[in-house]
Design a protein around this nucleic acid. Structure first.
Length: 878
RNA sequence: GGGUGUGUAGCUCAGUGGUAUGAGCACUACGUUGACAUCGUAGGGGUCGCUGGUUCGAUCCCAGCCACACCCA
């Protein structure tokens, strides 16, 4: 017996445990059907489930469950990312509480501590994904720092290095002074702010009283200046080119050079050049072979190349200005809108810094990654994201992959005594290579830098399947079928996976990339902790159940659009689950038992034929839309069928049958009900796995678990089977409208006549008499050939007239109003038809079918108008 | 500055070259025997951002404009 109330808390956990313990999430490797695989976007090991994960994983789980039911070999590969900076930050923060820094521990001890932390506190998110119902094969869970995945990292690194696609270079990089590491361009966030523009002047060497006027936003970097640039086209200043300026305070002569970087229209037309601390200046420096002077320490304080060693940049800026003022060189300070780079994790200002770093030759790797998308080997869904991808890939810069952190994959690089580089997968191999090179045993020194977290994430699609070993899983599931991810990660991850996979596997990592949007708050604002508008999906699951949260995500997911969270809507989907629960209870109370040998093609009652046809139609819609990754259309199709068709109409229509005396009709109807309910459970299961499973298990003894139940074959619905009941539904709806409009009390049992009914209607009148009477609350429904009298309320029903005799209680004013309203609606339509049909262009050029349809509508409207006018005339004197 | 996307009912959003059967929520009225008040029935509410063009016909296609959002520099 089902509980009276739908209470998801009572069964969600139990059902999930059963799935996991029974191995239901493991692929059926014996299946003769296609493989279907998804690798999860690995959440950070530090992560907790946020609303975006809930969306992302719901969509994946829907696809996975659907394909599993289609009988394919289905693998949803789970795992986590070691998240270099994020994790190191968390562990360092914990240590700091005890007054310990990572340097106190030393590298080895620190890494041990991180692993310990990972075992104890990491991976909360995986437990939370279980509550969401995610059917990943947890037995295959991977971690980017696993031995296997680390081996993959080393192998591909060595390969890229030996192919010249990884190289070391002294370049300007984005320096995060909090974590004291380089970061990639993508990890830098540009923020617009109002800063200051400082105007001051440098004396010209050997020309007393002559100056060159400079404008800059960062005066404190002047100690790294190695030139001043003016445009060669600058008529006012070009005479200075070739002379020297004297850098004040330090009194160092620097050349004045001609370079187009100095825009005559901007500032003073002269630009100080600091090649070691500005990306543009670096390029200018290269063009003019200028020296590079580094003025910053790793923590972004000024170094001994400046007069203010150890001072932070802000203070140094003030000091510099003061000094310039003392020297009488400061001219003015103005507000100036500018863009300042910040570290996405650290939040501190990112400094361009000249350091030795390692780079991946992304422009070369991008070529194949671009081609694969151009050739359709990998398709974006929706397709429009292709453009974003191409845009970025075609302008990609070398990828800085070295990080001066401790937590991460240490690069497989060793240095010989003369700093010669040996890049091998293991220390032994590196040693052997070195010994051979030097002709004697030498001491090697390992590179201390670790790799950007995204380097190992880039291998995720194949490293998790066992690569570099040629495993059965790799053979079966690579390339994966589809990647589901949010658009904000296309560059970080999708692009990197494409590059790494095309390079190493010569195949795309996934055949499709389904890109979804962000989940925003109710007003459409981005959720953020600082705004305090985040919504915890766990709380939603507690309150509404996982199924309601999942269904919300699916129903709201339309391609290329963000989702605004809506508690009332989630509540609505909880209500939907309740509705289904109660429908199942209705079946239970009426002995609607599922029969294994039931043949839906052999039902005889019109209602049963009708619901079977509607179920086939719904099945097709759900499937077609899922195949096209149209989640909302798919979810809405099943929603509409369950609530709008099955509950609102079918259950109501069969009540007279179930409460009646015709045992054969009853038996067929009960079996049909049970069949339809089962069909609903199947097609709803990918969206709402918990309630469907609970009902599946409790409404019949069945030979198969719902999670493994076969997805039904797609069949075209029999349109004629739907017409009959549609007639009854239309009639019931019309009578109900009429009742409401005429203010006839719901309790009043009415008589309804149908006058001038055609042959077909006469037949339906008999077939559905009982049902219409029941649903429209009638005492009597019959055909009528007598005169229409003024005490009858009249309405047009198809070819016939619908009459309700009211024996002197007709509210004539209300009736006149109702009829007049209908008349003006008809007139409005008629006007439209006439306009079109009187237009010769329309009649000649529009397709014949459209013209015919228009004529038919016109004729129908004219007939109806006549009927309404007659009715009005009849009551004119009352 | 470059790019992408969005503008449809009070709100959040579907959708389509042929009368907007629009959905959910909100709103109004009425609720009748036993699936469900986490409900039922009926109803109100829209010149589909603006201006042009293409077309017999445009909310839908094209162009321009306005507003908003996001990404990149």
């Amino acid at each position: 017996m089902l509980e009276k109330n739908y209470n998801p808390k009572e069964f969600e956990e139990k059902i999930y445990k059963d799935w996991e313990q029974s191995g239901d999430f493991k692929p059926d490797m014996r299946s003769d059907k296609d493989a279907f695989s998804i690798v999860i976007p690995p959440p950070n090991v530090t992560g907790v489930l946020h609303i975006g994960h809930a969306l992302n994983n719901t969509l994946q789980d829907i696809l996975v469950r659907y394909n599993r039911m289609l009988g394919k070999k289905v693998l949803w590969q789970p795992g986590m990312d070691h998240a270099g900076i994020a994790t190191q930050m968390v562990v360092e923060r914990n240590l700091a509480k005890e007054g310990i820094s990572r340097h106190d521990l030393g590298r080895e001890k620190f890494i041990e501590t991180v692993w310990k932390w990972k075992e104890q506190s990491g991976g909360t998110i995986c437990k939370q994904l279980r509550r969401l119902g995610a059917s990943c094969d947890w037995s295959r869970e991977r971690f980017t720092m696993d031995e296997g995945l680390s081996r993959a990292v080393r192998k591909i690194f060595v390969s890229l290095y030996k192919d010249g696609l990884i190289y070391k270079a002294k370049k300007l990089v984005n320096w995060d002074s909090k974590f004291m590491t380089a970061v990639s361009d993508l990890e830098v966030i540009q923020k617009e702010t109002v800063g200051k523009m400082y105007y001051y002047k440098y004396p010209i060497e050997g020309e007393e009283g002559q100056f060159i006027h400079i404008a800059t936003t960062r005066p404190e970097t002047m100690f790294g200046d190695t030139a001043v640039a003016v445009s060669k086209e600058n008529e006012k200043l070009k005479h200075l080119i070739g002379k020297n300026a004297i850098l004040p305070i330090v009194n160092r002569p620097i050349p004045i050079i001609g370079d187009e970087h100095a825009d005559p229209e901007k500032g003073t037309g002269a630009v100080k050049i600091t090649p070691a601390h500005d990306f543009n200046d670096f390029e200018v420096g290269r063009r003019h072979d200028l020296p590079l002077i580094n003025i910053l320490n790793e923590d972004a304080t000024l170094n001994e190349n400046t007069p203010f060693p150890g001072m932070d940049t802000q203070t140094a800026r003030q000091k510099t200005i003061e000094k310039l003022e003392e020297l009488g060189l400061m001219e003015k300070i103005e507000d100036h809108p500018m863009v300042i780079p910040y570290g996405d994790r650290s939040g501190v200002v990112i400094e361009p810094m000249l350091t030795d770093q390692w780079f991946v030759d992304a422009p070369t790797l991008a070529k194949e990654a671009i081609r694969a998308v151009e050739d359709g080997e990998m398709e974006f869904v929706p397709k429009s994201y292709e453009k974003t991808y191409f845009e970025w890939m075609c302008n990609i810069q070398p990828w800085c992959i070295s990080r001066q952190l401790w937590w991460g994959h240490q690069m497989p690089i060793w240095y010989g005594p003369d700093d010669k580089i040996f890049c091998e997968e293991t220390e032994e191999e590196a040693q052997a290579a070195a010994d051979k090179h030097y002709g004697k045993h030498v001491e090697l020194r390992r590179e201390t830098d670790v790799l950007d977290t995204w380097f190992s994430s880039g291998l995720w699609a194949f490293s998790t399947l066992g690569w570099p070993d040629n495993t059965e899983y790799l053979q079966t599931f690579y390339p994966t079928t589809v990647l589901v991810t949010a658009f904000d990660i296309i560059f970080f991850w999708v692009a990197r996976m494409m590059m790494m996979s095309m390079y190493m596997m010569k195949k795309v990592p996934f055949k499709k990339a389904y890109i979804h949007g962000l989940v925003r708050d109710e007003q459409g604002r981005k959720m953020s902790k600082s705004k305090g508008n985040t919504v915890d999906p766990m709380i939603l699951i507690d309150e509404f159940g996982a199924d309601a949260v999942r269904f919300f995500m699916a129903a709201m997911e339309t391609q290329g659009r963000d989702i605004n969270i809506s508690q009332s809507r989630i509540a609505g989907y909880r209500n939907f689950a309740t509705k289904l629960w109660n429908a199942a209870r209705f079946g239970e109370m009426n002995q609607c038992e599922f029969k294994e040998d039931f043949d839906e093609n052999k039902v005889s009652l019109a209602v049963n034929k009708w619901i079977v046809a509607k179920a086939l139609e719904a099945t097709k819609e759900v499937s077609d839309n899922l195949n096209a990754y149209r989640f909302s259309d798919s979810a809405n199709a099943v929603y509409q069928f369950v609530w709008g068709t099955f509950c609102d109409w079918y259950i109501e229509l069969i009540k007279p049958v179930l409460y009646g005396e015709d045992e054969a009709a009853k038996a067929e109807t009960r079996a049909t009900f049970a069949w339809v309910l089962s069909r609903i459970l199947v097609i709803l299961h990918p969206f709402m796995p918990f309630i469907t499973t609970e009902l599946w298990n409790n409404t019949a003894k069945r030979g198969i678990k719902l999670i493994n139940a076969p997805w039904p074959e797609i069949k075209e619905a029999d349109a004629s089977a739907m017409k009959e009941v549609d007639w009854a539904i239309e009639l019931i709806s019309d009578i109900r409208s009429l009742r409401a409009e005429m203010n006839l009390p719901a309790s009043a049992k009415l008589t309804v006549y149908l006058k001038d009914a055609g042959e077909q209607s006469q037949k339906e009148l008999k077939t559905f008499n009982q049902m219409v009477c029941s649903l429209a609350r009638l005492e009597k429904l019959e055909s009528y050939n007598g005169e229409v009298t003024p005490d009858m309320v009249q309405n047009v029903f198809r070819e016939a007239a619908l009459l309700i005799p009211l024996k002197g209680v007709v509210d004539f004013a209300a009736e006149r109003e109702r009829l007049n309203k209908e008349l003006s609606a008809l007139d409005k339509n008629l006007e439209g038809y006439a306009r079109k049909l009187n237009n010769p262009n329309f009649v000649e050029r529009a397709p014949a079918a459209v013209v015919e349809e228009e004529k038919r509508r016109q004729a129908e409207a004219l007939e109806n108008k006549a009927k309404v006018e007659a009715a009005l005339k009849r009551i004119a004197n009352f």
